[in-house]
Computed example of a mutant assay.
Amino acid sequence: MLNLLYRLSGKLSGQAVAALLLLAAAASAYSAPKTVLVLGDSLSAEYGLARGTGWVALAEQKLRQNNIDAVLVNASVSGETTSGGRSRLPALLNKYKPDVVVVELGANDGLRGLPVAAAQANLRAIADTAVKADARVMLIGIRIPPNYGRDYADKLYAMYGAVSKDVKAPLVPFMLEGVADKPQLFQPDRLHPLAEAHPTILANIWPTLQKTIKAK
Rank of each mutant, 00 (worst) to 15 (best):
M1L: 14
L5R: 07
L5I: 11
L8F: 15
S9L: 07
L12A: 13
Q15S: 12
Q15N: 11
A16S: 15
A16I: 13
A19E: 15
L21G: 06
L21C: 13
A24E: 07
A27K: 07
A29V: 15
A29T: 10
A29E: 08
S31L: 15
A32E: 09
P33C: 14
L39Y: 00
G40Q: 03
D41E: 07
L43K: 13
S44W: 00
Y47C: 02
Y47N: 02
G48D: 05
A50K: 12
A57M: 03
K62P: 08
Q65Y: 05
N66G: 05
D69L: 15
A70V: 03
L72K: 07
L72Q: 03
N74K: 13
A75E: 13
S76W: 12
V77F: 02
V77Y: 14
V77H: 04
S78T: 08
E80I: 06
T82Y: 01
T82N: 01
S83M: 15
G84E: 06
G84D: 03
R86F: 01
P90H: 11
L92Y: 04
L93S: 14
L93F: 08
N94K: 06
K97I: 06
V101G: 01
V101I: 12
V102S: 09
V103N: 14
D109A: 01
D109Y: 00
V116G: 04
A117F: 05
A118D: 09
A119T: 11
Q120T: 05
N122D: 08
N122E: 13
N122W: 01
L123F: 04
L123H: 03
R124W: 02
D128E: 13
D128S: 14
T129C: 01
A130L: 08
V131G: 14
K132W: 10
A133M: 04
R136V: 06
V137N: 12
G141A: 02
I142K: 00
R143V: 15
I144T: 07
N147Y: 12
D151T: 14
D151P: 00
D151Y: 01
M159Y: 00
M159A: 01
G161N: 02
V163G: 00
K165D: 14
D166Y: 05
A169M: 03
P170A: 04
L176M: 08
E177F: 04
G178S: 14
K182V: 10
K182H: 07
P183L: 12
P183S: 13
P183I: 08
Q187D: 10
P188G: 08
P188R: 11
A195Q: 08
A195K: 14
P199Y: 11
P199F: 04
P199N: 07
T200L: 15
L202A: 02
A203I: 07
A203Y: 08
N204K: 03
I205F: 06
L209W: 00
L209H: 00
Q210P: 02
T212S: 09
K214G: 03
K214M: 14
K214E: 11
K216D: 09
K216H: 11
